[in-house]
Write a protein that binds this DNA or RNA. Structure first.
Length: 585
DNA sequence: TAGAATCGCCAC
DNA sequence: AAACGTGGCGATTCTA
């Protein structure tokens, strides 16, 4: 790419001329350079704004916040459209350091993800994206340079070039989004950037003392169980070892554990949980091993390490949320993953509302089954939801042709197993394992289920057929997943059929969820409230104690409202509680 | 010896 | 040898 012309704006006097040229544009390329990655501990150095043939580079170290105001005004309105690559990053720094919410976003990173439609071979950094869609080679070497001192011409040129590239890149990506019918999904994603940026910036409060005590408690038990296991597993070894060498085995090594068990006469293919579970009754040592595994998991994944994520600047945990974390559109979280904290009181009670505040914990009730009911237009399943009865009880009642109040707890369990497993394309063996029944019995239950819900059966089979035929599927918003499996391979075809059943449903739940986050992000600030965690179909909102009931009502009504944008046939309910901690009371 | 691959398990 | 979809991640083991 040829050299870009840029204007360095270091004095307040230069702002008005820049703004004059920027405000007449329908779209501008936007980028920032910062002294680090954490908005709470790093500084915003440059803001670059590109128009065709010209880039304005604002030096935030030399300009006061007030003098930047006329420029920032352009960023908080939908027009001009701001193009950024991973706008979440820039949005966080602009919010933290300039106090503004970016509005009117076109994100080239999210666009690239949508266009790739689940192709794992595609990378989505600016460099590969520019290479893929513009055929240009980009040098990102300056990105990690020191942006806190006097800037070299090389650095400024790099900064300007990045912003300038966004204009042609957007042209190309927008055309592709249009061709692929992805504009509606893209709109949902772009509007969700700011809510997610705000959530990351807010972070979630963890009671460190309480967490430490819990970890210490677990460690004590872990040490005891370890010692007991070592002793039991050494039995077999001692008899065989003529040299009397110590045989302390690594309990975290599946291979060593398997060998040790073998010496005790317990032969296993592998030592996965379900396999241990199977024989735990006859071999108490396996029960103990399972207990040890659980404790080890607790200490490694959810131990002291969690405390290192507490940001010294805020005292809170600011996880990294990937907005399009999966091909179905689900958000994922890492560093730490706040989406896989064990669902037990001892863990979750450590995630709390700070003094004077409360958490509203809200989740969609059976959202995926409701989407299935809506898509399939199955009258019986729709009726089950319309009745307002407990879904699994209603399902059992319909399967066995008996009144609701005569459903036994076993019948309800079986219906529950079916309701949960179905949207994942579960087979008879899977159900048998889940509900602790024989395969024959499971087959009969599935037959009964599909007799009751014939419309569901038809929709699922059609969805699977379509996936095999078209090698792709879409959600309600039009989000696309293209498959790169080989349909000639029976195993891959079976997998494809399962994904074909599940992805439209899981992905539509994502569509709904992102709309809910967007609507809430607009409504919550006036109540001094904010989203602090997001877990697929559950939201955690932190709010002042004094308005917690009001906020709870807002959360419920907006979440329901978001679902109604996509679902017309089925009622949607959201369960919400006001709590001191991340608990559903 | 660093990075990749695998196992195993947490969430929805 | 897995079962039922989507992930993240820590520990061990493999590999260049």
């Amino acid at each position: 790419m040829e050299e870009v012309r840029y204007t360095l704006v270091e004095r307040a006097a230069g702002i008005s001329d820049a703004v004059k040229q920027l405000c007449s544009q329908p779209v501008i390329g936007l980028d920032t350079e910062t002294t680090g990655l954490d908005p709470h501990r790093s500084k915003l150095r440059l803001i670059q704004a590109a128009v065709p043939g010209q880039v304005f580079v604002f030096d935030c170290f030399k300009l006061s916040r007030d003098s930047l105001n006329p420029f920032l005004e352009l960023l908080i309105t939908p027009q001009p459209l701001k193009i950024a690559h991973n706008a979440k990053f820039d949005a966080k720094f602009l919010r933290k350091h300039c106090g503004i919410n970016l509005n009117g976003i076109f994100d080239t990173y999210l666009s690239s993800l949508l266009i790739s439609a689940g192709d794992e071979n595609h990378r989505h950094g600016l460099e590969p994206v520019v290479n893929r869609y513009l055929g240009l080679q980009l040098n990102k070497a300056a990105q990690l340079s020191d942006w806190s001192g006097e800037l070299s011409a090389y650095q400024l040129d790099y900064a300007a070039k990045d912003a300038a590239l966004l204009l042609p890149l957007r042209e190309r990506l927008n055309a592709l989004l249009d061709e692929m019918d992805l504009l509606i999904t893209a709109g949902i994603e772009f509007e969700c950037v700011m809510p997610i940026a705000a959530m990351e910036l807010a972070g979630v409060y963890l009671d460190a003392e309480r967490w430490r005590e819990m970890v210490a408690r677990i460690r004590t038990v872990h040490e005891r169980v370890s010692a007991e296991l070592q002793k039991e597993l050494a039995e077999g070894a001692r008899q065989m070892d003529l040299f009397g060498a110590s045989h302390s085995i690594n309990l975290d090594s599946p291979a060593q554990v398997k060998d040790a068990l073998s010496r005790l006469g317990i032969e296993l293919e592998d030592t996965r949980e379900w396999r241990l579970q199977k024989q735990a009754k006859e071999h108490p040592v396996l029960q103990k091993l399972l207990e040890h595994r659980g404790l080890s998991k607790s200490l490694s994944a959810y131990g002291e390490g969690m405390l290192e994520f507490i940001n010294p600047a805020t005292g809170r945990i600011h996880a990294d949320f990937r907005q399009i974390g999966t091909p179905t559109g689900r958000i994922t979280s890492s560093s730490p993953s706040l989406q896989q904290i064990p669902h037990t009181t001892e863990y979750r009670s450590c995630f709390r509302a700070p003094e004077g505040r409360k958490l509203v914990v809200a989740d969609y009730s059976q959202i995926e089954m409701r989407i299935l009911a809506d898509f399939s237009n199955d009258q019986a399943l729709l009726e089950a939801f319309d009745s307002g009865a407990d879904l699994h009880r209603a399902t059992a009642s319909q399967m066995f042709g008996i009144p609701l109040n005569e459903v036994t707890s076993l019948q309800r369990e079986h219906a529950k197993g079916l309701n949960y497993g179905l949207v994942y394309g579960m087979g008879a063996e899977g159900l048998a394992g889940r509900i602790d029944a024989g395969v024959k019995a499971a087959e009969m239950l599935i037959e009964k289920y599909f007799q009751a819900y014939a419309g569901v059966a038809k929709w699922l089979e059609d969805a699977a057929d379509r996936a095999v035929q078209e090698r792709q599927c879409r959600t309600a918003s039009g989000r696309l997943w293209r498959f790169h499996l080989d349909p000639a391979d029976p195993q891959q075809q079976a997998a494809l059929r399962r994904v074909g059943k599940n992805a439209p449903i899981q992905g539509t739940a994502s569509d709904i969820f992102k709309r809910a986050m967007t609507m809430l992000d607009q409504a919550l600030p006036e109540h001094d409230s904010r989203i602090v965690n997001s877990i697929h179909d559950e939201l955690v909102v932190e709010c002042p104690e004094s308005v917690s009931d009001q906020v709870k009502n807002i959360v419920v009504s907006l979440m329901v409202g978001a679902a109604k944008e996509f679902l017309q046939r089925v009622p949607v309910t959201v369960e919400a509680v006001v709590s001191d901690a991340w608990l559903k009371k």
